[in-house]
Each structure stands twice: as C-alpha cells, then as structure tokens.
Write a protein that binds this DNA or RNA. Structure first.
Lengths: 219, 219
DNA sequence: GTCTATACAACGATAGAC
DNA sequence: GTCTATCGTTGTATAGAC
C-alpha cells in the first residue's frame, strides 16, 4: 500500500523530454531549465535524479540503446522477412522520420557523436555501444542472406557500409531539406547489393557448408 | 602611403581562428571571448568586424567555400589524373585529416549542418552551397570517366553517393576513434565502382555519341 | 521527493573614450 | 580601428525549507 508511485514517474518524463530536445536542438543548445519546464518539473528537482547534465545525457543514451529493437527495428521490419529487404526497410524508416519531422530530426546518435564525441569520453563510449547494437542487427541480416551473396563479402563490413550510408544520407538530406540526395544514395546502395546478388547467382559457390567432410577434392 | 595595413589583418585572423574552433568544438560550444583571446583581439574589437556571432559564422562558411579548391582538392589531387582515382584520393585526404587531428576534426561542413542547420536558415544555405561545390567537383570526375561507366549511371547521383559515404564514414570513424569503419566503407565503395567499370567493359555501349545521325537502327 | 531561492560563471552584445 | 568597462541574460549547479 505505501509507495508504488505509478512508475510513470518524473524521472521517466525527464529522460523522454531530454531525448527529444537533445535530438532536436543538440546537447549544448538545450538548457536544463528548458527540459525541466517541458517536463513540468522545477529545475531544482531535476538535480535530485541527475546531479549533472552529463548524467542526464548518459541516461538518454542508455535509453536509446534499449529502445532500438522495440521502437526502431520492430516497426520497420513488421511484415518484412527477407533479410536484404529488411536493410532497406530500416533505411525507409529513417526516411519516414525525416518526413515526419520536416528534416528537423536526424539520427540522434550521429548528432551527438559530432557534438559531444570529442569532449565527453563516457558519452562517446555509450554512442559506440549504440552503433554496435545497430550494426549487430544489420550484420545479422547479411549473415542470413550470406548464401545469396558472394563468399568473400564480410557481413559486418557490409553492415558498416549501410550504417555509413544511412548516417551520411540523413545528414545531407537535412542540409538540402529534400530527398534527392537520400534517394540517390539508397538507389546506388540497392544497385550495389543487387549486383552482388546477381554475381553470386551467376557464380554459385560449391557449397562447402553442406558436405564439409569431403573437402579433399583436387582436380 | 597612408593606410595599406599589410592585409594580414585582424579580420583574417578572426576568421581563421573561428574556422578552427567551430570545426573542433562546435558553434555553440565556442565563445566569442575564446575566439578573441586566441586571435589576440579584445572582445570589443571583434564586434567591429562581425556585429553578431552569426555574421562570423557566415564569414567562415564563405571562406570554406573559397578554400575547397586550393586547400582540399588541389593537394589531394596532386599527381592524380585518373578521374576515378581522384575520387578515392579525395577520400584518402579526409582519412589523413582524421589521422592528423586524432579523430578530433570531422568535416567542418557536415558538423555544422547537424548543429546549426535547424536553427540558422542563412547558414544552412551557405552549407548547401559548400556541398554543391564539392559535388560539382566529384561529378566532374564521373563525367570524365563516363565512357568507362555503364550508360545508365548519372554522374551527379554517383557524386552524391560519394559525399554521403564520406560524411557517414568520417562520422562513424570519429565515434570509434579508429579506421575500421572508414576503411570498410571505402573498400565497399571501391568494390562497387570496380563492378561498374567491369560491367561497362563487358557490355560496351554502341557509342551513340560518335555517329549520332544514324539513329534509326531497328532489328 | 518536490519546491523556492539563489550563487556564480560565461554568454552575446553595447557604449563610449581614445 | 582598438581598447575598457559593463549591461542583461542565460547557463549549470546548490542550499535548505517543506
């Protein structure tokens, strides 16, 4: 009967608001007073949960990490089973985000890498963890599609290429405030992957996976 | 005999220092007092040349635009004539910049797109002009290499893809503070372009450019 | 846990003497 | 063109009552 304060608590609200404002305005440009006001918390109370602004930053990055699967990957991949199509479904998700925010939100992780990566070492490590998490998911896609790809293509390296393309495409799209660059990049990336798929189809590998025992096959 | 104040003047020093600090620390995190101190100018004098901080930002972006050719393209392309290799020579230039600054400088344009793109419309337009200038140079490379590429590949779209790859690769490299992601992205980009070159070589186009008059060739 | 009140520094910007 | 002095605001962070 005591306590049990509904859990939808002040702390949660602060993290939520901070995530939005850091993504929208940047870290330095967002004041703690503004966060407190929007969260309907008075500035003094903010320091009860987060002694420093950096503590709050860390909390938002931890939260971003937890939310990747349920709020980014799951919605993007709903109804999409093909692993290669999942890659492009995720890229379409970021395009949709740009539309919904009129190019005002970028990738929250990439934004902060640039803004605080130099000056906040702990935050940088958390940002890396977020990238790793993202890369793991895309690497799995390419691993699942491995039989359809040329054998010398490392799934991790392909995943990195997709991350790089996404981050670059989001940035350039925001600069121009239109989708020309974003769509151009995705067209080229798709063209590349389709060429890899076609190449693997034209030169099928002697699937060493199935009968790995009889590996002595010379001439 | 009067005036002629050596031209290596205060204003130049301010722009130079501001360019460095905006690139290194970001726009919001750089104070005018800090700029003045480093340039050995007193804060009051700064406002003689640049009434507002934003005016100084605009001046640095204008300067970046002017410096692309002499300070970025020319050094990267020294001794490199092949247009495709020029693309990779430029990407190697950004890699070198990351090495020299221990991953602390990114692309000055990309950084500012993210930091001030939303809130400073005039600066955003200048940033776009910088991107356009960069894209023009790379587009020319692909245009020069057009006979060696498949005919359905727009040079501008390829240039955009290179810009996107560069910006994303620089960002991700800075997050990890190593070159794994950067090199992975460049390997994939090179693989893609080599596949395009090989494809064009395998399927030579019936060069319609040379004899454009006899275009009625059915069955 | 939440509130009021406030300390203290740094910010962008200005006025005016020289 | 350069300097001194300073305004008003906002920033992060604290102290302490409730």
């Amino acid at each position: 009967m005591p306590s049990k304060p509904t859990r939808d608590d002040t702390r949660e609200r602060l993290i939520q608001i901070a995530m939005e404002l850091f993504a929208f305005q940047g870290y330095a440009a967002t004041g703690l007073a503004q966060i407190a006001r929007k969260a309907k918390v008075l500035p003094g109370s903010l320091y009860y949960f987060f002694p420093t602004k950096e503590d709050l930053l860390h909390a938002t990055l931890q939260r971003r990490h937890e939310l990747l699967q349920p709020e980014v990957l799951d919605p993007a991949w709903d109804g999409v089973d093909d692993p290669i199509e999942r890659v492009f479904a995720l890229l379409a998700g970021y395009r949709r985000m740009l539309t919904l925010t009129d190019f005002q939100h970028g990738c929250p992780i990439g934004n902060l890498v640039i803004e605080v990566g130099n000056s906040h070492p702990d935050a940088r490590r958390l940002l890396v963890r977020n990238f790793d998490n993202w890369l793991d998911a895309i690497e799995r896609c390419f691993r699942d599609a491995a039989p359809r790809l040329p054998p010398d293509h490392d799934p991790r390296r392909l995943a990195v290429f997709v991350l790089v393309t996404m981050e670059g495409a989001v940035m350039v799209a925001r600069a121009y405030r239109n989708f020309e660059a974003y769509d151009a990049a995705i067209i080229q990336l798709r063209d590349y992957l389709e060429r890899l798929l076609a190449d693997a189809l034209a030169h099928p590998q002697p699937d060493k996976a199935r009968n790995a025992k009889k590996r002595s096959r010379r001439a």
